[in-house]
Design a protein around this nucleic acid. Sequence first.
DNA 1: CTATTCTACAACCAAATGGTTGTAGATCAG
DNA 2: CTGATCTACAACCATTTGGTTGTAGAATAG
Lengths: 146, 146
Amino acid sequence: MVVDQLREPLSDEELDRLFQAFADPTRRDIVRRVTVGEYSVSGLAALYAMSFAAVQKHVAVLERASLVSKEKRGREQIVRANHDGLQKVRRLLDEYEVIWRQRTERIADLLAETAAPPRGSMQPGTTNQHGRRQQHTNQQAGEQQN
Amino acid sequence: MVVDQLREPLSDEELDRLFQAFADPTRRDIVRRVTVGEYSVSGLAALYAMSFAAVQKHVAVLERASLVSKEKRGREQIVRANHDGLQKVRRLLDEYEVIWRQRTERIADLLAETAAPPRGSMQPGTTNQHGRRQQHTNQQAGEQQN
DNA sequence: CTATTCTACAACCAAATGGTTGTAGATCAG
DNA sequence: CTGATCTACAACCATTTGGTTGTAGAATAG
């Protein structure tokens, strides 16, 4: 099936390329344009105050990030938006949003706990010393990812 | 009110800084970490195989993008995640998603139109020549934004 | 008080980025 | 066929980026 490499774990390099691609106003504009209509590379180049080669490079960056793809038609290359790329970035940011919600929940729980008398919770190691000053030094020095 | 500069239009520079900030695995990891717990800058630095100054710079990038903020506590600087920044990026990508859905809708409409005999639609300028080959050259050479 | 820790910042460096011009091959129009 | 258009790509350049080391000040620990 073609579907469902959208569910696969996003690699660091993939995410680097995606965010990097979005980190430029011309490229963001290109993505918007080719999502609503079809453009050749020179059709795009006509829109911006820069050389054809510069726009060509921007399209190449978007293509490596899998945000657009090109299709040859006669002597022109038609640039099309690629939905997968967009969805991948959105998926990652959704994960960050989930982390936020979990954190908010956790804080609400702590507040409820200290407001009401401690019931089933408050076993030795489950919650830290009344909210302030977590570990914040030397938890596993393993590298990061994602 | 403090609320609702979230509804204001995102500036190009703001978006550049946000996406750029996300375009690095170490910085993405820092954002995740400081969303779940509190870290000083040196607490963060202990996690990665790079110098303190390097991590300090990463935090500075995140701070300029308003993805985190620092608060001085004693001799350490506590780094905290900033929800606004995340929401801004998500908002922009949601806009892109909307464009996609509109496009999909539009295509579905066109298909329905050509399948069924033309009813109330098909006035002179409303739809283009049976789908293929749009303008794609020289529509207003105005600069881009967003 | 003294030593240590945490931070900030400058100076430097290599590599990546975003732009340019120029050259050359394909394809299309007349 | 000839000329114009569209594309690809190389070479070059200035600036930014992501890292380093080193120095110095402020706050804490003993």
